[in-house]
Computed example of a mutant assay.
Amino acid sequence: MAIDAAGKAAMLDLLNGTETQLGTVQPPERVTSDGRYVFAANANGVEIIDSGVWTWDHVDHFHYYRGEPAALGTVAGGGTAAVATGLLSTAGSTGMFFPSSGTAVLLDNAALSDGTISKTLRLDVEPHAGIIAPLGDGAVVTEADESGTAARLRAVDASGKELATADCPAAAGTITTRVGLVVGCADGAVVATSDGAAPLLEHVPYPAGAAAPATEFDARKGRPTVAGIGTDAGVWLLNTREQTWDWLPTDTPVLAAAAVDDDAGHVVVVATDGTVQVYDESTKERMATTKPLMPKTLASPELAGKVELTVDGGRAYVSAPAEGVVFEIDFADGARIARTLELPTQPVHLVETGR
């Protein structure tokens, strides 16, 4: 699914090529998806679109579902929200943190699947660039220090009661794996888990002499190993099962990166020179690279920051907003460009749904 600069949303079915127009949202500053719902955040709230396609992960197999796409409505709030999703689109919850107001809410995913926006939890804290991320029946929410910077994590239950805490200086970036919830910190990450008892917040420090911290994470949905990028020419790999970090140096600085976390250990990187590179997680060797793919996009500082990468079990998808296309790349076959997709609208914001 793509949303252009004016907020026009449209979807392309990768199986049969069917195009679907989804109407218009307010021009978003940030777009997030859990694989079904699309959360388009602007300065005044988050508009939600149900793509109508989703997957239920049973770990050893998957069930795939299809319904009708629909616009579900808006969650109003102050400032461009940080949205944190879970593993399932029809169960659990989705977190939204509004930085200008300090409002943190959880939405009921089961209600969303019925077309209803229902808040199961609302917390009002000091305004800051924060996070609320679902964990079990509750959530993990950031707390600001005296300077207004997220510095501490609080695990709360469904009523908002505090159950556990952990320090997390300059908290930024979150992702949920099958192991647990990850929140990035200036000195490493916190991996939060909950098995129905008291939540456990475990600090995973960076190795001594670490490079710049990761401020965002991405991976094939649910997989234990995630890729984190910061400002250096390289990618952090966090194994949430082993609770270990590994540094993967790259030939060029990185725009986006995602860990496939398959048997071959593929890590896909979009470099600042416009190439898509594939690395071996174990050997750190570059296995393949494409030619530069997006010269027009990289010539625009605004659009260069909008390049999106998403990976699934067999393909990587990379948006080139200025060129108006999305590249489908077979990362296991020498970074071969399998298809160049033209979506019904300019892919300034891109998400992959149905996964």
Rank of each mutant, 00 (worst) to 15 (best):
Q277H: 01
V182D: 06
W247Y: 10
G313W: 14
V140M: 10
P199E: 12
A189Q: 11
I329Y: 03
K306L: 12
A259D: 03
T231F: 04
S282R: 15
R223M: 01
R36I: 07
E242R: 02
G180P: 06
P301Q: 11
G334C: 06
T240W: 00
L12Y: 11
Q277T: 01
P207A: 15
I132A: 04
A259S: 14
E342T: 15
R36E: 12
S118C: 00
Y65L: 07
G130D: 08
F98S: 06
T290D: 07
C168Y: 06
T55V: 15
T353V: 14
D232C: 00
A129P: 01
V269G: 01
A2I: 09
A208H: 01
A172E: 13
A259E: 00
V204W: 07
S101R: 05
T240H: 04
F331R: 04
T90H: 06
A43Q: 15
T24P: 02
L88T: 07
R355D: 10
T250C: 06
K119T: 15
S33M: 06
R355F: 08
T55N: 10
V83K: 04
R36M: 04
M96Q: 10
G77H: 09
D280A: 14
G228Y: 00
D108H: 07
D246V: 05
M294K: 08
D34Q: 09
A332D: 05
G196V: 02
R30L: 12
L106V: 12
P249Q: 11
L181G: 02
T244S: 13
A210L: 05
Q277P: 00
C185T: 06
R152I: 11
S159E: 09
